[in-house]
């Protein structure tokens, strides 16, 4: 879907992005993670040509982005930013309709699409379509921001710290919605975040950047289990890396068949995170939990020792 090939970008002599090569597969969510100044936002903004590459190339669906007209390219790519950037003088409806209107859709088609999107992001159209951005909460505004970015059915969605400005419970709700939306639409998402938990929860692939260089790519489980360097380990929690690893691994990765199923208590699902399992063990004072539905259909157990197994 997107392929970065030896991409570099400097600002006044300082390299913000340094020789990055990275592929994002269609229909996946990829997180660009790193500390501030790691070049992750810069890399994102090179994709829709808000910035231009100095060296290397970015291919979008096989086409070099520099050969596409920036305005056309941006209309094909959704874009969500942390500060949302809704147009305060337009209603929610009109905000969402921005790109379809630029593309000249018929008003009937736009109206239908807006209602569909408001439903998709969990805002009942009857209540919200005609409101103005300043009448919405921060979380609702970002939902509108996501709806606006998805309006013209983009194949690719770029998100720059989309949920960084909302409180943690709201953020979790938005993350859950985003996962559900992505499953339904199959949109490829490239997301910038410095929130380790968000990256692990949302993304199939992590790309860790540091001082403009790509240090490691891989699934959250593989990156957290085998960090490629001290920088990567430090970013994912340093001494607390182990705890973050529990967020990336699932019960199904570690549970084993027990004969007979000797555990007591409410069984835990295989796709729950190990963090959830540990939390239950601590709360319930057990070192063993029953597990529902292993891969082969049998039931199993999860021992505390399974969590620390390398």
């Amino acid at each position: 879907m997107i392929r970065f090939e030896g991409v570099s970008k400097s600002f006044g002599g300082a390299k913000a992005v340094d020789d990055v090569t990275l592929s994002v597969a269609r229909g996946t969510i990829c997180a660009l993670v790193g500390t501030s100044g790691s070049g992750k936002s810069t890399l994102l903004r090179l994709v829709n040509r808000l910035l231009e590459v100095d060296a290397g190339s970015i291919r979008f669906d096989g086409e070099d982005v520099t050969r596409l007209a920036p305005v056309e390219l941006r209309r094909r790519v959704g874009y969500v930013i942390q500060s949302v950037g809704l147009f305060p003088h337009w209603t929610v409806e009109r905000n969402i309709a921005t790109v379809p209107r630029l593309l000249g859709w018929s008003s009937a088609r736009i109206g239908e699409r807006v209602a569909e999107l408001l439903d998709l992001v969990g805002l009942p159209p009857g209540l919200h379509a005609r409101r103005y951005p300043d009448e919405l909460s921060g979380g609702q505004q970002q939902r509108v921001g996501v709806a606006r970015a998805l309006a013209a059915e983009p194949e690719l969605l770029l998100m720059d710290e989309p949920f960084g400005a909302v409180d943690p419970p709201t953020r979790r709700g938005l993350q859950d919605s985003l996962i559900a939306i992505q499953r339904r639409t199959g949109t490829t998402i490239l997301l910038v975040t410095h929130d380790v938990e968000e990256a692990i929860r949302l993304c199939g692939t992590l790309a860790v950047l540091h001082h403009g260089r790509l240090l490691q790519t891989g699934t959250p489980a593989s990156v957290l289990t085998h960090p490629a360097s001290d920088e990567v380990a430090r970013f994912f929690g340093g001494p607390l890396l182990g705890l973050n690893r529990l967020k990336a691994l699932r019960v199904g990765d570690r549970a084993h068949v027990a004969d007979p199923p000797a555990a007591e208590g409410e069984p835990i699902d295989t796709d729950a995170t190990l963090e959830t399992a540990l939390a239950r063990m601590v709360a319930e004072g057990r070192s063993r939990l029953p597990v529902r539905h292993l891969a082969d259909g049998r039931s199993g157990v999860l021992d505390l020792a399974d969590l620390v197994r390398p």
Partner: peptide, 18 residues
């Protein structure tokens, strides 16, 4: 004018005139 609105406008593919 909020900078975010201008950035969003550009990011969504408005021309400079728009």
């Amino acid at each position: 004018v909020p900078g975010a609105a201008v950035e969003a406008a550009r990011g969504m593919g408005m021309t400079e005139g728009q």
